[in-house]
Amino acid sequence: MKHLLSTRDLSREDATLILDTAQELLAVAERPVKKLPTLRGRTIVNLFYEDSTRTRISFEAAAKRLSADVINFSAKGSSVSKGESLKDTALTLQAMGADAVVIRHSASGAPHLLAESQWMRGAVVNAGDGTHEHPTQALLDAFTMRRHLGELDGKNIVIVGDVLHSRVARSNAYLLSTLGANVTLVSPPTLFPVGIETWPVATSYNLDASLESADAVMMLRVQNERMNASFFPSAREYSRRYGLNAQRVAKLAEHAIVMHPGPMNRGMEITADVADSDRSVIVEQVTNGVAVRMAVLYLLLSGSQTPEAIES
């Protein structure tokens, strides 16, 4: 694994290795010294073309706990069509000796471009690209589910909301199916992408029908601007048909958990009482995010990429 661009690229072994590694790294947060020397002297650049404080902080904490030097390169505000090109930025980062670039970008595929160009040699971690993928979010979601539900084989995971525009839904759909879970995506028909039938998931337009057998329900953020583009008639109708409220939570099995990648639109896709209930593992998702990102950075940056370096 040279880069982490998409959860589609992860085999079951890769994904399990990341999750197992994160499991061990979670304990670091509870030690007197919350730092490992592993990536001492390595440089990790957080290249954020989109404002996402929570993701950036999570990656920053992960990198620092591994003793890496972190450079935050915020390109927000400079729209992608203006200002310095991604190529020039990449050349700059290469000249600065970046060993890894964590990139968040509004354009789908920008991390691929960086990884496949000859502009820089470092590892590329996709921290969310446009409406494409957000692989570390899916990994931390899977990690959180595994802690509550055990191995994901055969578990029923329901993901609800704007699948069309959601990078979290894409990454989770592929990762969770790779890990053996039964994924059901629930959305109004307007918010499913064309070709959804080729995804390794079941789909439904009916949230209520999907809840009873669910082991975990993940609510996706619904952007208000979708309403203006006629994806659904009104926020009220959306939340009535696809929002998670106390009545719907009551249909869930005892052990089922409620998740949300954040930031939440309380009152839209999830009511405040559900978000704050003991079913909700939303805050824990944040904690787990650091451990999962540590695991990803460790596995990408330690280790030779050449197969001949085998233990003698």
Partner: peptide, 21 residues
């Protein structure tokens, strides 16, 4: 005590998983 993260040869070997501590 897993010592993987403290090894001085991490960059010379394939990345590996961690053992329990």
């Amino acid at each position: 005590l897993d010592i993987t993260m403290y090894r001085d040869d991490l960059r010379m070997r394939p990345a590996r998983g961690l053992e329990p501590t």
